[in-house]
Design a protein around this nucleic acid. Sequence first.
DNA 1: ATGACGCATCGAATGCGA
Length: 261
Amino acid sequence: MAGMKLTTWNVNSLTARLQHVLDWTKSNPVDVLCLQELKLTDDKFPLDALRAAGYEHCAVFGQKTYNGVAVLSRYPLRDVVKNVNGFVDEHSRLLTATVETPAGDVRVVNGYFVNGQEPGSQKFSYKMAWLGGLREHLRQEVAQHERTVLLGDFNIAPEDRDSFDPEGLRDTIHHTREEREHFQGLLSLGFTDSFRLFEQPDKSFSWWDYRMLGYQKNRGLRIDHILVSAQVQQHVKACTIGRTPRKWEKPSDHAPVTVEI
DNA sequence: ATGACGCATCGAATGCGA
């Protein structure tokens, strides 16, 4: 596990963002790259280009137009599970796999969490139900795998300091008590938010709205997270948000977040 | 704020994201 890096990145269409992924991984050759919002079907996944970039082992769970997740790895993958155990879902949102690193196995759970649109809406109810299912899924995973990493686009700003406007946005989507309780519920299974293991700059965010110069004004949210089980936490060396790709032309609205273990 | 901005869908206007 020594020196191993894992990244989560919501690319907002892998078709539109393939070159960014290739460019970024060239200067940031992380070992495991977990992507969300592929917005493509499995047959359209650019396997050859990503293999050529060093990601020989890819688990893909795509979907047309919306959602879609993938785990790209330099090491072999096994025991791949699609979606939340026991939760019937039309969307492709979760991919669980074991990464066989030279220093031992790491169970990786990559999620594109439900957005939820607005509290009180049907989509919000779906978000709550999905989060409830995820917690049970995780409970089973950690029972079987001491070294587990849960990462992805959570669509939850866990605390006020994870939002550019916590007062103005209080109780709006990503900021509600119910969402934050679900985030704490995941932590209560024995996980730690790896980003908060370290001193971080104020107003650290992972997403910025495309509109109204959101990035330039740093009007953002920290909604992309990497949670680690206790057996991983003791090895964590750093957790950082990579803002460089957000400055490129036609960027994803999310930044990659990387943990080193 | 109905809005903005970006992506996908067969071909324009709409759904969706956060």
